[in-house]
């Protein structure tokens, strides 16, 4: 059985009486990009900050390679690359000095990887950090998170501020990291990114994990339909569809049946008009944001 690289067990974090996350459990595996999505204030950053020991969980455990990840476990820290959503670095340093400073914390030689990444992201090492634009600061943050060749990458809204060309460079880099067998926890609220790069996705809302989905499996199973038929009520019952809207003869539906079974079932009825649409992951996630119950 495949062992998870990163496990979050029953994580709960309360800020006083305010809930950050509650009873959140996740298992993430090597070689996957796990999308962690949710609206603002859903608890994504709280979860990540608990993993990184920036804040203390109220209860719960973080395990890395089956071992509890303690705050001062420097060996485990050395295999983690972390990119916070807002990057704050030392303004008095130049990019070169910052990268040199970072290199100094790692036992292995990471200079070659640093050079590769700075060339790939076209980052000028002579600039002072205080003079960097938001996009360039993001590039520096990415290089700092990746340059020590971590096995686990925890990325909180990594593409905000990057131009579309650099976003593609970044997506390619993520795919390479996945191919190397590294785990990537990718937190974002940009839904279109998820379908582009993620293998699995976890949806968090009001501090609770409300859905875990495999991106590709979902694509093959869920179908959006608009059907006009005098037998619309029978059709809805037969194909076990979720109704989004309905009038006398027309209904907008969501059906989870495989396509061949769906078509065979529809063939038994009188159908005046049919429109079949594959919902994009964005649409699906958006529905979860709107629909799911507010409690865990």
């Amino acid at each position: 059985m495949k062992q998870p690289t990163l496990q979050i067990k029953n994580l709960t974090k309360y800020y006083g009486k305010i809930k950050g996350v509650e009873n959140l459990s996740l298992q993430l595996y090597a070689g996957e990009i796990f999308g962690f999505i949710g609206p603002n204030g859903a608890g994504k950053s709280t979860t990540i900050r608990c993993i990184m020991h920036l804040i203390n969980p109220t209860s719960g455990q973080i395990l890395i390679n089956d071992k509890e990840f303690k705050q001062d476990d420097t060996e485990t820290k050395s295999i983690i690359g972390y990119l916070p959503s807002e990057i704050h670095l030392y303004d008095d340093l130049t990019v070169k000095e910052m990268l040199n400073y970072h290199e100094g914390f790692y036992k292995k030689d990471i200079h070659k990887r640093r050079c590769e990444l700075t060339a790939r992201f076209q980052l000028d090492e002579t600039k002072r950090i205080e003079d960097l634009s938001l996009g360039n600061l993001k590039k520096l943050g990415i290089i700092l998170a990746f340059m020590h060749e971590p096995k686990i990458l925890i990325l909180d809204e990594p593409t905000s501020g990057l131009d579309p060309i650099m976003q593609n460079v970044f997506y390619d880099l993520l795919k390479e990291e996945r191919a190397k067998g590294n785990l990537i926890l990718y937190s974002t609220h940009i839904l279109s990114e998820i379908s582009k790069i993620c293998d699995r996705v976890g949806i968090i809302k009001n501090g609770c994990l409300i859905k875990l989905e495999e991106i590709h499996t979902d694509k093959s199973q869920s179908t959006s339909l608009v059907i006009t038929s005098p037998q619309i009520n029978e059709i809805i019952r037969d194909i076990q569809a979720v109704v989004h809207s309905q009038d006398n003869t027309t209904a907008s539906l969501q059906c989870e049946l495989p396509h061949d079974i769906l078509i065979k079932k529809l063939a038994q009825y009188s159908v005046e008009h049919i429109q079949i649409k594959q919902p994009s992951p964005e649409e699906m996630f958006f529905r979860y944001y709107e629909q799911e119950n507010e409690t865990c």
């Binding site: 990184m52 020991h53 920036l54 705050q71 001062d72 420097t74 060996e75 820290k77 050395s78 983690i80 690359g81 972390y82 916070p84 807002e86 990057i87 704050h88 670095l89 030392y90 970072h102 914390f105 790692y106 700092l144």
Partner: peptide
């Protein structure tokens, strides 16, 4: 105060 702690804390060093 400068929020650089998020970077520093991610490095392989202990808080001590």
């Amino acid at each position: 105060n400068d929020k650089t702690i998020e970077y520093l804390n991610s490095l392989p060093i202990t808080r001590s």
